[in-house]
Amino acid sequence: MSAYAALSRAVYKAAVRDATTVFFTFAFPLIFLVIFALIFRNQEVADTGRGYVDYIAPGVLSWGLANAALFGVAFTLMQWRNDDLLRIIRLSPTSIWSVIGSRYVVALGIGAAQCVLFVGVAMLPVFGMRPDPTWPLAIPIMLLAVTAFLALGLIVGSAANTPEAVAAIANCVVVPMAFLSGSFYPLELMPTWLQEVSRILPMRYVNDGLTYAFTGFGTMADYLISCAALVVFTAVFAVVGVRTFRWSNDS
């Protein structure tokens, strides 16, 4: 078994064996989705002929993807460094890219599972989501979202030395971002200046891209801009992440 495959398996098992991780990755966003969808059941967004659920689902999905990718990698990095596992890896011939790569492939798998679960639930007759035929465009956005927030998670995981610090920093990053990016609340209803602020937040582009893929809201050009923006965010976060990376707490 390659080091990469073994580490992926180790990360996967650590994730699925932790009830808290499973809850906050799958159940918690799903609860939000169900609550919003029930509140706005049978209501249509004016002039679109679409139910609210068509807009709510991409929003909750973008928040769920970002949350899981960021928390997951930040926790793993902090924990592996605290437990001296990074030192064990550092002292083996395995490269750091196998470590990050294994965490990445697990994060992508979790992201894909979240997409299937959340969209699947939203499409139940009781909620009635109807994705556009352009829905496959959600796949690149999902990949880019997981990548960008994983890179952001590397920074958080290096900055934090305790689980409490990871949770505090990650929540401070994700929760305001989710509100300002229109994940819970349509951007159009916010003041113009806040809409402008959202342009510096990666989650806005996840939300825009997913909304376009599922509902056709916006233009193809906007969609491509979202993809490009996420690539840029990933590059910036990755550079900072590599610079802040530490093998152990005491060096």
């Binding site: 932790d18 437990d83 064990i88």
Partner: peptide, 18 residues
């Protein structure tokens, strides 16, 4: 230094793979 939430055997299999 043990891999989080693995069994002793799974941990050693992971270390061996490194």
């Amino acid at each position: 230094a043990f891999f989080t939430r693995l069994t002793a055997r799974e941990h050693l299999v992971t270390v061996a793979a490194l």
